[in-house]
Design a protein around this nucleic acid. Sequence first.
DNA 1: CCGTATCCATTAGAAACTTAAATAAGTTAC
DNA 2: GTAACTTATTTAAGTTTCTAATGGATACGG
Lengths: 154, 154
Amino acid sequence: MPGERTPELDPDEMAAVVEEFNGFYIRLPSIQRLSFTTLSVLHTLARRSPLRLGELTATEQVTQSAITQMVTRLENDGLVERRPDPRDGRAVLIHLTPAGAAVVAARRADRVARLAPVLDRLSAEERSAIAAALPALRRIAELGESQNEQRGRA
Amino acid sequence: MPGERTPELDPDEMAAVVEEFNGFYIRLPSIQRLSFTTLSVLHTLARRSPLRLGELTATEQVTQSAITQMVTRLENDGLVERRPDPRDGRAVLIHLTPAGAAVVAARRADRVARLAPVLDRLSAEERSAIAAALPALRRIAELGESQNEQRGRA
DNA sequence: CCGTATCCATTAGAAACTTAAATAAGTTAC
DNA sequence: GTAACTTATTTAAGTTTCTAATGGATACGG
């Protein structure tokens, strides 16, 4: 049909839905022995490890002193590792260890296990609609990240 | 065409994308004076207020004592209000005040203001894909919630 | 009623964070 | 090369927020 209208994307509606969805999604994992900030650090490292301690501080909402202390705790727990940065002797590179990656993976697996049965209750059309939107959501994350890097530099 | 294949929705991929997207989305608001748990409580109340203190405890990952103390702080700040439950003399109903609702709304507005320019950089197709997926995402949140209620009862 | 369970508050102490200042080592610019 | 800046650690005191344990009031079921 010629006059077919592509659906409009309203940022307000999107924000409302995302918050609603996240309210559900965030509560999916059953295991919750680590604090929110700690999990956030591990998750950040899971996506881009190694990271300098300063870079890690920039992504989280705590002071640099707090990150230093947290990394020390995580290192004692064997979840991360400090290594020298060959390109800058002052810096420290924080690496996620296999054990640390396992924690993140376990949480992901836990979420998937609880998410999958819910997805099964959707219609085929609903599932395809979500599948079709995933690349765009991924691209938002990419665009937003490069934007934040520029914000950080300013 | 007859053999058209609807795209498959892989739970693992969805979890990966959602986490990636959330990494961006969570960091959108600039104002960050309240702790994560506090914001979570306010947000929960924004969707379903009033709530008994015990119900609030069930939704968050902290002890009942921590919720009692947090509600006291929030009450001093004028963001929530304690009122007796007419149906149960032991219980307390936590109401979100207009000031509390304003905090949640301000955060939402802040997010939208930062989200909108990123959405503008997407293609029209990407935007429609997301718009088309929103109802399904909303339904997941609904389905997941009723499921969690059953989990809570068990 | 009376015992028991439920709901919330209170207390004390622990954990994690902030601020601030001092240190140390490495890099950069002149 | 030297001064100025950066990066990270350490220490200490103070604050916030959490847990654990206890207690008090109300509801509920024989």
